[in-house]
Write a protein that binds this DNA or RNA. Sequence first.
RNA 1: GCGGGUGUAGCUCAGCUGGUUAGAGCGCCAGAUUGUGAUUCUGGAUGUCGCCGGUUCGAAUCCGGUCACUCGCCCCA
Length: 414
Amino acid sequence: MAQLQPARGTQDLLPAQMRRHRRIIETAREIAARYGFAEMSTPIFEFTEVFARPIGEATDIVAKEMYTFVDRGGDEITLRPEATAGIVRAVISNGLAQQAPLKFFYTGPMFRYERPQKGRFRQFHQIDVELMGVAAPQADIEVIACGRQILDALGIGGRVVLELNTLGDRESRAAYRDALVAFYKRHLDDLSEDSRRRLERNPLRILDSKDEGDKRINADAPSNAEYLTPASRDFFDGVRRGLDALGIEYKVNPRLVRGLDYYVHTTFEFITTELGAQGTVLGGGRYDGLSEIMGGPPLPAVGWAAGIERLAMLIEEPPEGRRPVAIVPAGDDAALPALKLAEELRRAGFVVELGYSGNMRKRLQRADKANARVAVILGETELARGAAVLRDLDKGEQEEVPLAELADRLGTFY
RNA sequence: GCGGGUGUAGCUCAGCUGGUUAGAGCGCCAGAUUGUGAUUCUGGAUGUCGCCGGUUCGAAUCCGGUCACUCGCCCCA
């Protein structure tokens, strides 16, 4: 048991795990590109206020989960807990709103100081899609469809379900919130301790409580449908018609509430039952007011984020990379010719494995372990006549090949 | 921040109600095969039994603390 460990909630991505991450990122990048999302990146840390205001002072993320510190210049800095606020800040900073619609794909690490558990880490990675400058439901539909295609392409489409809800516009949301607070205040004595706290911070969250007593109270709670303005209702209908037209299945879940303050209208989550308590694999919604909250121009927007670690736990193990050509020098005189040959073959595009030590037997063992497809054995007698032995490691057959023809012959194996 | 579970070799784990040299499989190393891998056979190395303290003639085993991991709550990707 090693004494030296990574900081709690962080982990090393060794090659096998890294392959999973890459598979997810590359799949998402490719599919997002088909929708016209252009990849961008922002700093990993920002001034604390970039996150604090838009996410919501009362949310857990801001209240207790941010990695915040004062740097040597006295600035208050925070490691980003999510991507959207930084992206919107970048849009404002660079005056990009005029070029709307803007469509961005994003991937990178995020940081939240939480107690780690299955599918939850202090440093984790997300892929992210944002569509800004379009107020119509088409944007929501496109963004959700993109998420659906990525999950399908990763082979886990059948293991997640899409849940959909609307919070309505700000007017609807405020009216519903007031109604809920009034309702819960009448049941204050019966509410769980957690929910009494939620009543102050985020009353919508009580709807999603796992407490049995809360669930009984929730059965009689007012429904948000009654508080939607006609415009909000129309918007939601538009989103649903679009998803129906695309054959994207979803379940309307009126209890689906997103924690971040900046969401309005559409909220959605792709959920799996295979990850314990952390069912949400991809979640997002519309955040029309965020740009203005941050001091920017009006900019309606919708987007989602997906947790790469969570997706990585669901996908099949990706195949290893290209199988190498192993070069095996036999004898000291073959060492430099082997080095030279490896260099030439790499320049020609082959993946080449050249061992560092050992006799031929050892080197062939390593070639096997490296999953090499063929071995090129450079023996002194063959070298003397300008040739090498080409061994097919799958079949166990070999033959002598002139060095001049080697690259062409190797090509037939791939 | 709160509650439960688990810490024995590189990995997966065994070790009954405390008994003296702590085990297996896989992996690793070497040899059979000093110019031929993956198969087979033979041999070998590897552990502060997470850490600190206590009980005891004696602790991997019991007790306390601590740290780490893990699952759940809160919250979220």
